[in-house]
């Protein structure tokens, strides 16, 4: 017996975040579930390897990434959401925000009021518009946004994952919100508005 300091319950607490993380990368619930199972199993067996330097979740995500990479290696498939280093020059440009503001810092065409937006949650078509808008984000931006808002990682965890400084992170998240907002407005909340 090892002096296992990580109980199954403690590991299971992270299951949901790990699952969403895996699902975003693998796009298949069964594969994602397998990867998470394997991750929790090896974490439990190898908990001596957890030095407590990083947070438990960071450590678990590290293991999960290996499991996912193993899977792609075995299936010789292209990962859907490839890892980092894809920061397009275009994504990094200031121009992104310039599309929304005039040179004096005022909105070009400011956000209009949305009437009872949460009513949209009940409509199936809203969710396909939402998905389209989210997929329209440039890849790296989409990844950062999804890790934070869908998977539920903390901001500092996202920074580590995506190799961003805190300042870059805020900029990326802000641009993602500007774009997503604009898209939702044009495609759902105020369809009279013209696409730029």
């Amino acid at each position: 017996m090892t002096d296992n300091s990580l109980s199954e319950t403690l590991l299971a607490e992270h299951r949901q975040v790990l699952f969403r993380y895996a699902l975003l990368q693998m796009r298949d619930p069964e594969l994602a579930d397998d990867a998470v199972q394997e991750t929790l199993l090896s974490a439990w067996q190898g908990s001596a390897g957890f030095a407590g330097k990083a947070s438990l979740r960071t450590w678990l995500i590290g293991i999960l990434k290996h499991k996912i990479a193993d899977h792609w290696r075995r299936s010789a498939h292209d990962p859907v959401l490839t890892d980092s280093h894809r920061l397009d020059a275009a994504e990094d440009a200031e121009a992104d925000e310039d599309a929304f503001f005039m040179s004096n810092g005022h909105w070009h065409s400011g956000p209009s009021a949305w009437n009872d937006p949460e009513a949209a949650f009940r409509q199936q078509e809203f969710w396909s518009v939402y998905e389209t808008c989210q997929n329209n984000l440039p890849p790296k931006m989409a990844k950062v946004f999804m890790l934070r808002e869908l998977v539920g990682l903390e901001a500092d965890e996202v920074c580590r994952e995506a190799g961003l400084t805190e300042t870059n992170y805020w900029v990326v998240m802000h641009r993602a919100r500007l774009r997503l907002r604009e898209c939702l407005e044009i495609r759902w909340f105020n369809s009279q508005k013209q696409e730029k």
Partner: peptide
């Protein structure tokens, strides 16, 4: 405009969480 932006960012956070929960 900024007031709308503020409300809508909160709305988008909620929407993203729901979307995540439904993945």
């Amino acid at each position: 405009s900024c007031r709308n932006f503020q409300r809508q960012t909160q709305f988008m956070r909620k929407a993203a969480r729901r979307f995540g929960a439904d993945l």
